[in-house]
């Protein structure tokens, strides 16, 4: 009995041995068709199968937001979603934010406002913010806090992130006509 104590929370994918399921989806604009273990989380699918290592795991239970990606326009924590739930989905990860070798306005503002330090939570923050601004190009501070309150950062004290999000929203409205 004692032995199971620390097996409850697992950081890597463990094969279930079940029959694989064929999964089709779009990730960062690319069509993907793969056979996956039905027990595999979307996070592990992105990292282990698609080798998109930008998406991070920091708790494995949907509490910290480090694994946030955009699925069908909504920010989701990929560590508590099964890969098979993404059948037919459109997914964007941090690797899909820059286009044609040019950083997006959001990424530029994270840099210029110094909205990151160690950088481990950054992809999650960027994706939560991306989904927010896609759905609401002119969020109030309260709306920003409500959405980003689900992402943990231990370095920045959040204030520079708040400034970056405000600035990015403003620039996107002005420069991209959102």
């Amino acid at each position: 009995m004692d032995n199971v104590k620390d097996c409850s929370m697992v950081t890597e994918h463990i094969e279930s041995g079940k029959r694989k399921v064929t999964l089709s989806l779009t990730v960062n604009g690319r069509q993907i068709v793969r056979d996956v273990d039905p027990n595999m989380t979307l996070l592990h699918f992105l990292r282990d199968n698609l080798k998109l290592f930008g998406t991070k795991e920091a708790c494995g239970e949907g509490e910290c937001g480090a694994c946030t990606i955009i699925m069908n326009g909504q920010a989701v924590t990929s560590c508590i979603i099964l890969a098979v739930e993404a059948e037919g989905a459109e997914i964007t990860t941090v690797e899909g934010l820059a286009e044609d070798g040019k950083l997006s306005i959001l990424q530029e503002e994270f840099i210029s406002q110094d909205a990151l330090q160690c950088g481990f939570c950054t992809p999650g923050f960027l994706m939560s913010t991306r989904a927010l601004l896609d759905n609401n190009p002119n969020p109030t501070d309260a709306e920003i806090v409500e959405v980003l309150g689900g992402n943990l950062c231990r370095c920045t004290g959040y204030i520079p992130i708040m400034l970056a999000v405000r600035r990015a929203a403003e620039r996107e409205r002005k420069e991209l006509g959102r």
């Binding site: 104590k5 620390d6 097996c7 890597e12 990151l116 950088g119």
Partner: peptide, 27 residues
Amino acid sequence: AREKVTGQAVFTYDMELPGMLHARCLL
């Protein structure tokens, strides 16, 4: 910053070496 906002920054957590084994501890 640039590497960190594009998902390129590699942390030890991201690393895998050829033949790498995985460990588990009993506490």
